[in-house]
Design a protein around this nucleic acid. Structure first.
Lengths: 206, 206
DNA sequence: GAGCAATCGGAATCCTTCATTCCGCTCATC
DNA sequence: GATGAGCGGAATGAAGGATTCCGATTGCTC
């Protein structure tokens, strides 16, 4: 966030390029993407990556942090712009459409340290508010909790990775079907929802 | 299927173990699982794997074929045992519960050759019958097609890979929510369903 | 515009991770 | 008891990829 030392102009440009490229490449291949791929996408030498980020994990962490910020921003926007009844659905849609938002979660080696917990601590209350608004409006089942939305997001993302290259829009269609499942009118599932603590564990390196 | 040459009794036992182990290990790690992992799980030397299967791809193909058979078998059972109104839902549930059924599809290197097309040719009509029964009974939306069920299966499986280890039952809960989305009472999604041909491409090595 | 430290690029290094091969030993089977 | 089908698992070789290093550039300051 706060860059104490100012970079040379060209270095600053390259840093931005790297972050952009890393976001896209990680989004596409998950943590398994290679540093060389990222460097190539950023049109930068590998050495340049390593001057900014001591290693791959740190670069990934930076990307994930940015994605978390973006997610929070989306939640804020939804809370502001969207009708209470539609907020929850629109939030998930916008997250799916955002290039890398929450995408890291479907990667195998997402956060390390307490990163996931911090991200969730920021996100869960926001999503809770969006959700409650929908429930008060009667457009969202009363048995839905924030982790349900996140889980939906994760599964849609995973499906997109699998299918969208060959069948564009597949995950989008599935998303709408899944969202319909969140609307009132059905029996609650026997299985209780995932806890936030569990989700934190899911998102953390094993 | 038809083993022309009969194996020594111990060899036959080992073959069964290998197939079992491969099924489980591939289910757990996808095609990236190593031959050594499989050999270890089967409590067998690596050499033994290679005497039965000339290479990894062939072993994987054998596992996938078995899974396809199992899926078809489940469809048959559902058609026979389950109420028309519940068949579609129960089919997906049973597939999710079957240890390796359709699991390969979420792996990155599933079928090669025309394997996927053959499997789909066998499965799609069966699923179509299950689906139509539900639609006639009024428990399934009229805009749902067989690929929707398969896509649901795939996303639930993917979610399970991500979460179930840390939060058991998560994919199960999501499955029920997603299935609710297939029930009548909502607007059809704007995005048309995936075609069978596209699904075949998704399942095939790139 | 000269000097210089900050930057670059990317070749080279060093691991790790497999798939696959090979071969001496074992033990069903006849 | 002979013998060849089977077995285990060390060894091989290739690929992939993170990280390091260093000579060549180039913004920036005086």
């Amino acid at each position: 966030m706060t860059e104490a030392k100012s970079l040379r102009r060209d270095a600053e440009l390259n840093l931005a390029r790297i972050l952009l490229a890393a976001r896209d490449v990680f989004a596409e291949h998950g943590y398994e993407a290679s540093m060389e791929q990222i460097a190539a996408r950023a049109e930068v030498g590998i050495g340049t990556l390593y001057r900014r980020f001591p290693n791959k994990a740190d670069l990934f962490a930076a990307v994930v942090d940015a994605a978390t910020d973006r997610t929070r921003q989306i939640a804020d926007e939804v809370l502001l712009e969207v009708t209470p009844g539609e907020g929850a659905f629109e939030f998930v849609r916008r997250c799916v459409d955002a290039p890398s938002c929450w995408r890291a979660a479907t990667s195998r080696r997402p956060w390390s340290g307490g990163g996931a917990d911090r991200a969730l601590a920021a996100l869960v209350p926001l999503i809770g508010r969006i959700l409650e608004a929908g429930q008060r409006a009667g457009t969202v089942r009363s048995d839905i909790v924030p982790t349900d939305l996140m889980v939906t997001l994760m599964s849609v993302r995973a499906l997109g990775d699998l299918c969208d290259a060959d069948a564009p829009g597949t995950s989008r269609r599935f998303l709408e079907l899944a969202l319909d499942g969140l609307r009132p009118g059905h029996m609650p599932p026997a299985q209780p929802p995932m806890s936030v603590k569990q989700l934190g564990r899911v998102l953390t390196v094993r």
